[in-house]
Design a protein around this nucleic acid. Structure first.
Length: 603
RNA sequence: GCACCCGUAGUUCAAUGGAUAGAAUGACAGAUUCCGAUUCUGUUGGUUGUGGGUUCGAGUCCCGCCGGGUGCACCA
């Protein structure tokens, strides 16, 4: 597809030179796939060309069309409709490309260039707090990050997935304190609760104690604002944080214990989701790093110090504000450690890009981060990117941990898997499966539905999740695409079982003469895969892959319903269709893998 | 108040400035002697929030307004 478009563009430029003695700029020749309702494969938009040709769009289109038909062997026919020149490409061109694709073992996948090993692309995602379990918002983050990393890998980047765990701070102390006061020594083992859920339970517990304290104080006629500061549990939590920072043995031991519970919980969630990381960073180890960089900025005169000792960067010349980088007591704030961590990573890896997968409420933060690094004179400031995604809304509005309106990640995945089980049992097609095989299948389908549901949406757009309505398993859904793959596999098994057809893989379709419209559409769509992959990588958008994979499934199902594949009398037709089926399965599997979605052989 | 993001069928989502704005879902009507019906075909459903502008051409770009969200913390 890509090849034809490029070739056609050059041909059009040549035609313009021959016919009108003008040479259009490459960008002035707009070529797009022809819309379904017209005849053709590629369409040249003639308006811009007509201007430089000084003729009407209709006339220009016809003249260019005639020229192409005459001079280009690959062009079979042309027609002009309202200023659009539709070009029909010869079947032989498509078939030759299809043959190349089938023979190309690395189709749709570029081996990482070894020189990039020393300048990897870092993708930071997940980056959870260790005081509560993961919820639906995290799920969107994790799926996006994992998928983006896989997409970039497929385009030949050397990718390292990293996770920056926010394992310290007042929020952790709150859970710790509540557990000390009310936990009675409860552990994941004693309670049977997953570690992250157990710790999250005490985070909620803290909030209750806090509210009780505030209520008791306001009852004495003190303002709520004042009461929040005076609340004994809050003061105790802050005292605990001071002890932690002073490296108090007992506090640190408790912190380590409770964090270890959380990590065990997170790991099981990550494992179920099928995601991984090449390196973990912990904020407890990185939060001090930024101080040095702030000092460097002061020395260079690009940051400044206020009378109270706090350090700021002035970004008003960039259209932003002044931003605090270091508190007056010398302690660091959020951005301080991001400055330090980015520099650490650059020193460690010499990254060519560092991509942060973080919610869009931090758009401003990342602008500031980049510009502060620019002011420091680090030429790699421009290699920091932010894959910004919008929140997931519930019908009741935003998810709020404290109000208990969050959709828990583990629970959600469990529900999806159960739903997959229910539907699969109803269909009864896998009654011969061993129980562990069946369980694995339910997971594949349930998570396929969830992942597709989330990733098909443009990351920048807010999306609505309604827990009352279960996520689709039909229509524009993950299981629909999985089942198309399963159908392909079933057809292939049939082909394999027939002696005259089992060698379809060796069949050379280059000179196949009986191609049908539905076969042609499917074949063209399959060839488009590398182009789609590149676009998804350029735009950091798994949604583009999701849209593509749906298109392929639609085309295959349309083809399947119209034509018998195996078990027909004409062997050559069967061989061709089996080959088409084989390549469809291949592309579906490969593209779904980029979304973190597995495919079953049967379902 | 200032800044950024978003507004598309009843609903959930698509559409590198290009042709008659597409899918899914819902409702209704059909399709299997077959290689898998979690399928396919059709009907239904739109003043793309709104008013201007730029352009041969605007859902897309610019300006105003309306509605929703987020950020502007010595929180992270």
């Amino acid at each position: 597809m890509m090849l034809q478009a490029l070739a056609l563009r050059n041909s059009v430029i040549a035609a313009m030179q021959q016919l009108y003695h003008v040479k259009p700029e490459v960008n002035d020749v707009v070529i797009q796939p022809t819309r379904k309702e017209f005849e053709g494969d590629l369409t040249v938009v003639v308006f811009g060309l007509a201007k430089s040709a000084c003729k009407s769009p209709q006339e220009t289109g016809e003249e260019i069309g005639n020229y192409l038909s005459e001079h280009e062997a690959s062009v079979q026919a042309c027609n002009v409709v309202k200023g659009f020149l539709n070009v029909v490409i010869n079947n032989s061109v498509w078939l030759a490309q299809f043959n190349d694709m089938a023979d190309d073992k690395s189709f749709g996948y570029s081996e990482a260039d070894s020189s990039f090993v020393h300048a990897p692309v870092l993708v930071e995602y997940s980056s959870p707090n260790t005081n509560k379990p993961l919820h639906l918002g995290h799920v969107r983050n994790i799926l996006l990050g994992y998928s983006l990393a896989e997409i970039l890998k497929a385009t030949g980047s050397h990718v390292r997935k990293v996770n920056l765990v926010n394992d310290r701070g007042i929020h952790i102390c709150k859970s710790m304190l509540a557990w000390l006061k009310r936990g009675n020594g409860e552990t994941p083992e004693s309670s049977g609760l997953k570690g992250d859920h157990l710790v999250g339970k005490y985070y909620v517990e803290f909030d209750k104690m806090f509210k009780d304290d505030v209520a008791a104080i306001t009852a004495k006629g003190i303002s709520e604002e004042e009461a929040k500061k005076l609340a004994p549990v809050m003061q105790e939590a802050q005292e605990m944080l001071r002890k932690w920072e002073a490296n108090d043995a007992e506090t640190v031991a408790l912190w380590q214990l409770m964090n270890s519970w959380v990590y065990a919980g997170f790991n099981s969630t990550y494992n179920l989701m099928g995601v991984d990381f090449d390196k973990m960073y912990y904020e407890s180890q990185t939060y001090i790093l930024g101080k040095e960089i702030v000092k460097e900025g002061l020395d260079k005169g690009v940051f400044f110090k206020k009378d109270d000792g706090s350090v700021w960067v002035d970004l008003t010349d960039e259209g932003l504000d002044q931003k605090l980088l270091l508190r007056s007591d010398g302690t660091s704030v959020y951005i301080t450690q991001d400055l330090g961590t980015s520099k650490l990573r650059h020193t460690e890896t010499n990254f060519s890009r560092l991509i942060y997968v973080v919610g869009n409420e931090q758009d401003y933060h990342f602008k500031v981060l980049r510009l502060a690094l620019k002011k420091l004179g680090y030429d790699w400031w421009d290699n920091l990117h932010h894959l910004s995604y919008a929140m997931v809304d519930l019908p009741s509005g935003k998810m709020k941990s404290r109000e208990g309106t969050v959709v828990d990640a583990d629970e959600l995945m469990g529900d999806m898997i159960n739903e997959a089980k229910r539907i699969t049992k109803e269909l009864g097609k896998i009654d011969d499966f061993e129980s562990n095989e069946a369980e694995e299948l339910y997971t594949t389908i349930g998570l396929g539905a969830l992942k597709y549901y989330i990733l098909k949406v443009d990351p920048e757009k807010r999306m609505l999740f309604n827990p009352e309505e279960s996520i689709d398993f039909n229509g524009h859904s993950g299981p629909f695409i999985q089942s198309t793959y399963v159908r392909c596999r079933s057809v292939i098994r049939k082909g394999d079982s027939l002696p005259s057809l089992k060698n379809y893989a060796d069949y050379d379709p280059s000179f196949y003469s009986a191609i049908e419209p539905k076969e042609r559409d499917l074949l063209k769509a399959l060839l488009k895969y590398p182009e789609v992959l590149n676009e998804a990588a350029d735009r950091y958008s798994p949604a583009i892959i999701a849209g593509y994979v749906y298109e392929i499934a639609k085309y295959y199902n349309g083809f399947y319903h119209e034509h018998a594949v195996a078990d027909i009398e004409n062997v050559e037709v069967s061989l061709f269709r089996l080959k088409l089926t084989e390549q469809t399965a291949r592309v579906l599997k490969m593209a779904l893998a980029l979304l973190g979605i597995n495919v079953p052989e049967r379902m």
